[in-house]
Write a protein that binds this DNA or RNA. Structure first.
Lengths: 108, 108
DNA sequence: TATTTTTAGTTACTTTATGTAAGTTATTAT
DNA sequence: ATAATAACTTACATAAAGTAACTAAAAATA
């Protein structure tokens, strides 16, 4: 009954972006390196999940974690090249949303 | 501590596409109208969730449900104009995946 | 010096989302 | 009349996410 198998690379990319918070997190980091607390307060993610996601994205080479030896030590998260390469996707989502998401459906 | 508030339309679009299976489901319908069973066997979604997603997407004006009066009656799901308008996003994801998803990371 | 704050998390527990498998209703094929 | 198929739905199990309290290390304050 089935036909055209879906490309596994595409599936992988979709499953990455379908993880709750991941897209918003990357979007947030597009505006520059940020600390744990800043990210947490800019999107509504819980600390537990943010920590999980950051580890995950770091492991996938999308996010980079830097310990900055100031006093006090500062920990900064930023996008890698691979992370930044997702920008066109996010821009398309942004364009789409401007055109197709109406005021009436904004109360989640 | 927070700054730049994220556009609510963008957030809405992201939350739509971050629902598990939604992107793959839309992708599948890009190739034309399909029946419940066909969709179910082309992506690995369970009947319970597929039914839920279709109702949801129908309500958001992305998917259309048609009862085709053949014998036996056939029920077809297809994309609306709004649904098709998501294609550029999916194409961007596809492009990205070809460039950035490596063989090594394909075993989910 | 002791006490409180701040940052970057982690842990334990609850709620929500998804998966699994069996059941339902209507129609059709045997 | 009996079995099969399509499109769901229901009940229950497991996994993912939310909540809130806790920790460790350093720094600021009393």
């Amino acid at each position: 009954m089935n036909q055209s198998i879906i490309c596994p690379r595409f599936e992988k990319a979709v499953s990455l972006l379908s993880q709750r918070w991941t897209t918003l997190l990357i979007y947030q980091l597009l505006s520059g390196p940020q600390r744990f607390g800043t990210i947490q307060s800019s999107i509504a993610i819980s600390g537990r999940v943010l920590s999980e996601r950051l580890k995950d994205l770091e492991q996938q080479g999308i996010v980079k974690r830097d310990v900055i030896p100031e006093t006090p030590v500062r920990i900064e998260y930023s996008l890698t090249e691979k992370g930044f390469s997702l920008e066109p996707i996010l821009k398309e989502i942004e364009n789409w949303s401007q055109e197709w998401v109406k005021k009436e459906e904004l109360d989640d």
